[in-house]
Design a protein around this nucleic acid. Sequence first.
DNA 1: TAAATACTGAACCATATGGTTCAGCATCTC
DNA 2: GAGATGCTGAACCATATGGTTCAGTATTTA
Lengths: 121, 121
Amino acid sequence: MVQHLQAHFDAAFAALSDVTRRGVLEQLGRADASITNLAERFEMTLTGMKKHVGVLEQAGLVVTEKVGRVRTCRLGRCRLAEEAAWIERYRRLWEARFDELDTVVEELTRKEKAHGRKRRQ
Amino acid sequence: MVQHLQAHFDAAFAALSDVTRRGVLEQLGRADASITNLAERFEMTLTGMKKHVGVLEQAGLVVTEKVGRVRTCRLGRCRLAEEAAWIERYRRLWEARFDELDTVVEELTRKEKAHGRKRRQ
DNA sequence: TAAATACTGAACCATATGGTTCAGCATCTC
DNA sequence: GAGATGCTGAACCATATGGTTCAGTATTTA
């Protein structure tokens, strides 16, 4: 279960680590699109775009459906909820860590003052 | 400026896309650590761990300082604020997109009801 | 000063990534 | 049915990734 989550994190963050793919997600947020649409908009070959869509699909961020000869891409069920939560947890950790550091610095400063000038170089 | 931000996104999300690196960040949230510390905890060679730390450092998530023979790693100034914001924006987009879809579905359902049974196969 | 510790760099390896071209194969459209 | 359209798969390419080993160098420590 945990491994499963971790694998999902790997896939989702990796999917987001490319500027084209982030662009595709934003685009699909505005309207569904075919592979051709996306390839044109991002100025690359169909094959190249299909690979990006594949990565996004693998991560659950996009779903596609082929009807006739055109494959339509739309946003998938993955809403990045866990990913957002992970980052939020990290941010709290970060803050706690630096509050702690502030305390240490403050403590040192306090001691410095208490012990006076004799410590100065 | 935008390119700069995009490059940062690339680096940050890529850094987060590995389970070991996410673990290192969580670890450093608890306490600073040397390369040796981290390598032991994550059961890999010093060289391997150093590469991971390098990636995290590149992304600004970690800073390191070598004093004597030990290099200490701690959390860097990057707090993933923009990344969190990006994801939140995406989530709102996602919801808007699906609300819209709901409206369409609702609309269809309404029409279906209005036009009655004659349409049914 | 010798041995242990901590890191570093180069070299290597397998696999992944981000792209391309080219040759299909369906499916529309005329 | 012929041609245009849209996608697909294989093959290729350069570079990156996630690891390793091995041979150092620098710094403690005994």
